[in-house]
Amino acid sequence: MKIVKPASAGTLESSDIQIRVEPAEQPGIEVHLTSSVKQQFGKKIIQVIRDTLEEIGVTDAYVEAVDKGALDCAVRARTAAAAFRAADNTDYEWRVRS
């Protein structure tokens, strides 16, 4: 799935994460994370973002994430929502997910 424009999902409220996905300037996925728990959970959060993008077929993207203590399920949901918006794609392929 090709990222064609910048788009974001999520908020800066507690337990949420704001994810902004932009077209990549170079091949691959680059994630920049801001989080008060980056020391303890930063690697895990970045891995969840990468796994989610891989799962939905995004290979090239620049991601800005501002975490406010989100659970993994919220990180996955916000990443997917932002990526589909940034790809201008509404074929969510739930049939594949389930």
Binding site: A9, G10, L71, D72, C73, A74, R76, A77, R78, A80, A81, F84, R85, T90, Y92, W94, R97
Partner: peptide
């Protein structure tokens, strides 16, 4: 609406 759908789906399949 799209973001909420992803969030509820993700929560129900995880929590």
């Amino acid at each position: 609406k799209d973001a909420a759908r992803f969030l509820v789906y993700s929560a129900l399949t995880t929590l």
